Simulated scan of single mutants.
Amino acid sequence: MRKHQTSAPLPLTDTLTPGVPLDQIGRTLASFYDNLVSEGVPEHLAALVRRVRQTETEKPAQVETGATSARAAHRRVALVVEDDPEIRALAETLLEETELDVVGCDSAEAALSVLQARGGEVALVFADVRLAGQMDGLQLARAVATLWPRARLVVTSGRGLSRPDLPREAVFIAKPWRPFDVLVEAERAAADPPPPIL
């Protein structure tokens, strides 16, 4: 049975997530990156994980529900950018089966608003080339590749698209896309942690 310590001083908390102790956030990050250290994570990130673990062993164990709620509060996002409401709804429904939260937009301008507000949480941008609004999907893809390079970028179109038109980081899936292909890219986006900001 776990005991709660009531006499201990209150831990430091993250100002962006009031009430969540920083050491719980650190433990959550450490557990998230646990398996990745053995899979070739850069040494500076591995060193950060080791420091977090060392700090964790020096502190008394705390209730896991805080770490679980911190993890749930920071779910990553799949951004679906498609002007056809039926196709957008299909992609949203498909991506809701993954670990990602889904946000749908009908234009590049709407997608940029979401990225400006939640860019650090966006793991996947799935965008059609033809969109409502003045920007097309290629312009959006270039903006995402430049300003939010940590997001996995998937561009789709019913017309053939030559590779030079896309940013180097982008994946192209022709329409009609297969649900399996979209899910594979979503799983890659969910599995790849965003690199640390240096």
Rank of each mutant, 00 (worst) to 15 (best):
H4M: 00
L10W: 07
D14A: 11
L16G: 11
P18R: 14
P18K: 02
V20C: 02
L22W: 01
L22E: 04
D23Q: 05
Q24R: 04
T28V: 12
L29R: 06
A30L: 12
D34Q: 12
L36W: 03
E39L: 10
V41Q: 14
E43K: 10
E43D: 07
A47T: 08
V49E: 05
R51W: 09
V52C: 05
E64V: 10
E64Q: 10
S69C: 07
A70Q: 01
H74A: 15
A78P: 02
V81H: 02
R88D: 02
E92A: 14
E92P: 03
L100T: 13
L100F: 08
V102N: 08
S107M: 00
S107Y: 13
E109M: 09
A111D: 15
L112W: 00
L112P: 00
L115W: 02
R118K: 10
R118Q: 12
G119P: 06
E121R: 13
V122T: 07
V122W: 04
A123E: 10
L124V: 12
A127G: 15
D128K: 11
D128Y: 12
V129R: 14
A132Y: 04
G133E: 04
L140V: 04
A141T: 14
R142Y: 07
V144H: 08
A145R: 01
T146P: 01
T146F: 12
L147K: 06
L147M: 07
R150P: 01
V154C: 05
V155L: 11
G158H: 13
R159M: 04
R159A: 05
L161F: 01
R163V: 10
L166E: 04
R168E: 14
R168T: 06
R168C: 06
E169T: 06
E169L: 00
E169C: 02
E169S: 08
A190K: 11
D192L: 07
P193I: 09
P196M: 11
L198R: 03
L198D: 13
